[in-house]
Design a protein around this nucleic acid. Structure first.
Length: 426
RNA sequence: GGAGAGAUGGCAGAGCGGUUGAAUGCGGCGGCCUCGAAAGUCGUUUCCCGACGUGUCGGGACGGGGGUUCGAAUCCCUCUCUCUCCGCCA
């Protein structure tokens, strides 16, 4: 959520920001409503002041057993007027709010202005594309030959986009998750969270999924709960409606969760294999910081995600999203794209975002400054560390041998319990 | 799912129609005392909105929403959540 006060003070900045995010210009309408609202609120406040004073007088009169009928009937009229004004305020609030909740966050000044992903900025890359002296298979061929993924039966059981991981494939998936969680908790100092996989409407609103992305989430209509698209949602909402003491900041959480995405309208795009699925696993890092520290934290967060890929010796590159490609709530976002040598493509495995106070404002997450005891909004950030399906793609394709088996790098062997994946008996 | 009880400040816990933004205790902060600390003692300590010389003034908020009333933390309705007992259940 944006701050109406800031919009009031500097409308041009917000008009530019909305434009950079490819969002229509609602600022003028907003300011007009805001002006009306404040005018009516001050009228209402004035009448309430009168009512408070006279009511106190009535109480005094009653105490000494005098009649106050004239004052009472006068206040009855005032009360009706107040109610009318407050009803008007209510209806303006509704209009204001319906606009406010749809306005995206402003891009940070360091973010390049652009319309689409084509204009994203290359930041850096790590490692090199590995070279092979044999013909490479893509992850689908590998997984099928090895018997470690079963898309066909996944589709039978649930539908397309619900892969089944089998045997060494299941174990490898679990190894990824444990490996990443251990790294973030033991090496990077995150506290581990195992969150609920379903959230209520308030939580989905708090992180910015609602109202825009309602159709992209799986929903339980009976209880009005949403299956989480990312652990960001439950984990960020842990501190919804709270005031955190400054000495408890920064807060670092790392959480595994299954993630559920309907990906409405995306059919026909990347539908093969693991690149785009409805249910997947991800380890997510979430941070709460003081505003002045959030951009430093953003770079650290990116580094934490990179560490996973570096430890596994997988080549990747980093891009900084241009303004038009930023998500609704993000002020700045780095995407980490991993190289899949069998597919000859880079796949996005992590998004590392700074939301500044946008989510904090929606979810009412504040902190009390040690210096003066004042209350302000925290900054929230999160980054995938990382999502497993595309990690699996790059991993299988990178570590394939000329015989179609997979060599497990040493660092992961304690987690897999095996050193290579050969054809699994089914 | 059934029956009952409850939701008040950072926490515990009073108040149950009229100076109650809210007793009291704990915690926090500041002063005094002390070489220092503890103890003691005095003071202080919620958030939101608006207006104008940022300090004052006005308004709002006792789980959410609605109602009754001149006036609601206090009465009524409704929703949500928590606790106890019963049922069901991995």
């Amino acid at each position: 959520m944006l701050d109406i006060k800031q919009i009031r003070q500097n409308p041009e900045f917000f008009k530019k920001g909305l434009q950079a995010k490819n969002s229509g210009d609602k600022i003028e309408v907003l300011l007009e409503l805001d002006q009306q609202r404040r005018s009516i609120v001050s009228q209402s406040d004035e009448l309430k002041g009168i009512r408070n004073r006279v009511s106190a007088e009535i109480a005094q009169l009653k105490k000494i057993n005098q009649t106050a009928d004239d004052k009472i009937s006068e206040m009855k009229k005032v009360g009706e007027k107040i109610k009318d004004l407050d009803d008007e305020i209510g209806s303006i609030d509704e209009q204001l709010n319906s606009i406010m909740i749809t306005l995206p966050n402003m891009p940070h000044e360091s973010v390049k202005v652009g319309r689409t992903a084509e204009e994203n900025e290359f930041v850096r890359e790590w490692g090199k594309k590995p070279q092979y002296d044999y013909l490479l298979k893509d992850h689908l061929d590998l997984a099928e030959n090895l018997g470690i993924l079963d898309f066909y039966r996944g589709a039978k059981v649930s539908g397309s986009g619900f892969p089944i991981y089998k045997a060494a494939g299941a174990r490898l998936e679990r190894a990824f998750i444990n490996f990443m969680l251990d790294m973030h908790t033991e090496k990077h100092g995150y506290q581990e969270i195992f969150p609920p996989f379903m959230v209520n409407r308030e939580s989905a609103f708090g992180t910015g999924q609602l109202p825009k992305l309602e159709d992209d989430m799986y929903r339980d209509n009976t209880d009005d709960l949403f299956l989480i698209p990312t652990a960001e949602v439950p984990v960020t909402n842990i501190h919804r409606d709270e005031i955190i003491l400054e000495n408890q900041l920064p807060i670092h959480y790392a959480a595994y969760s299954a993630c559920f995405r309907r990906e409405a309208g995306s059919y026909g795009k990347d539908t093969r294999g693991l690149s785009r699925v409805h249910q997947f696993n991800k380890v997510e890092m979430v941070r709460f910081t003081q505003p002045e520290n959030s951009y430093e934290a953003h770079e650290e967060l990116l580094q934490n995600a990179e560490d996973v890929l570096q430890a596994l010796n997988l080549h990747y590159r980093i891009v900084s999203l241009c303004s038009g490609d930023l998500s609704f709530a993000a002020a700045k976002c780095y995407d980490i794209e991993i190289w899949a040598p069998g597919s000859l493509k880079y796949f996005e495995v992590s998004s590392v975002s700074n939301f500044e106070d946008f989510q904090a404002r929606r979810a009412n997450i504040r902190y009390r400054r040690a210096l003066d005891g004042k209350v302000s909004y925290v900054h929230t950030l999160n980054g995938s560390g990382v999502a497993t399906p595309r990690l699996m793609i790059a991993f299988l394709e990178t570590y394939q041998t000329d015989e179609g088996t997979i060599t497990i790098p040493e660092i992961l062997q304690p987690y897999t319990g095996f050193k290579q994946i050969k054809s699994q008996s089914s």
